[in-house]
Design a protein around this nucleic acid. Structure first.
Lengths: 205, 205
DNA sequence: GTCTATATAACGATAGAC
DNA sequence: GTCTATCGTTATATAGAC
């Protein structure tokens, strides 16, 4: 391709990705995907055979984009304090570009746990060993409080993902317009770094 | 009713509540609700006219059960440290009894933000004033760090809700069986109280 | 109120012309 | 590869007997 033009197959795939993330598998309609791609509905079946096969491919790709973000920074060699800041930064940057991703993954994951287990196994995804060792070492040296690495990891992910998942609720309860919500998210980045480092009683080495 | 027997209308409603929470609005089938209620499918329409009207009633009731839990303890008169422990306790106890509730509310909320806004407005739900004043007072007296009440509230809710929403992911990544996950949740209660109190640098008055 | 049977519409999927 | 037309199924919803 010489310029920005996607071919038909890619155009369908990107449209499907957007519609599935908006409506979920059950709520998505092949016609809506066709309209979004500005392509005839029968082309969807020509390239992807069925709704199920199209969804599976979208699901696999979105998962393959999501997990490296979650696990990527965790196993870097940077010191703990710096790493927490990088984690929050990386998650926010990714979710800002993909605001419906977290909701999509959580919904479809809970709808079909086996598919998630297969994906995790197939990709050889494991808890971040370097991060966990780093936590345990810092605990022994008394530089952080006595926290279970799994609990800390779930907390960091939860604290950053939740505003994107709960966006509608947060806006409604605090009566935020879009601009105020964006500001809330922006403020939250610095808030979270302090919050987490305090929470584990972090002292730089 | 003399004993535990529910009449037909209630039986349908409870079955609908379970199916909608399992499958979401789009994924739920009237036939599945009828089967779950062990009642003829046409009875659903006799009592509730349409799938949409049945869902609306279920949605309203589940919301009306959820929000008092989220806001209830926040506006009690108990001191901050005690209150955080009570919040975590209350959320966990409710979510343990209603494990699909958080996922259901978040999905259907994001699917129809206007319906949520109408509900919030109709019920006169506002940010918890007593809790927010308590935070601001503690800040002025130097008993906690300088945190925005909205950020703290979102953090507390996120930290407690997330394991229930992300249950499938947590079990898959850490390779927890059901027993281990229940233990993880149990451990998390005490973990979270310390984590949050540390995070805001809490000092009892 | 409860059942069977059926209308009606939507949706996924395919056939066949070009 | 792309289109129109249409098939077959499933879903919501209703009619009508009892």
């Amino acid at each position: 391709m010489t310029d920005e033009q996607l071919d038909t197959e890619e155009q369908i795939f990107e449209a499907a990705s957007r519609v599935f993330q908006r409506k979920g598998y059950a709520g998505a309609r092949m016609q809506e995907i066709a309209d979004e791609a500005d392509i005839n509905k029968s082309m969807l079946h020509y390239y992807y055979r069925s709704k199920d096969k199209l969804f599976t491919q979208v699901y696999q790709r979105e998962m393959a984009r999501f997990f490296p973000v979650i696990f990527g920074v965790m196993d870097s060699d940077d010191p703990l304090g710096q790493k927490i800041e990088q984690l929050v930064d990386a998650y926010y940057s990714f979710l800002n570009d993909n605001p419906k991703m977290a909701q999509f993954i959580i919904t479809e994951m809970n709808q079909n746990p086996q598919r998630l287990r297969d994906f995790i196994k197939g990709q050889g995804i494991h808890p971040p060993q370097i991060f966990f060792k780093q936590i345990n070492k810092a605990k022994q040296e008394g530089r952080i409080a006595d926290v279970a690495p799994e609990q800390l990891m779930v907390s960091i992910v939860g604290l950053t993902l939740f505003p994107f998942i709960g966006r509608t609720m947060i806006k409604a309860i605090f009566d935020f317009d879009e601009q105020q919500f964006i500001q809330f998210l922006q403020d939250r980045k610095t808030f979270l770094v302090d919050f987490i480092l305090n929470a584990i009683n972090y002292k730089p080495s």
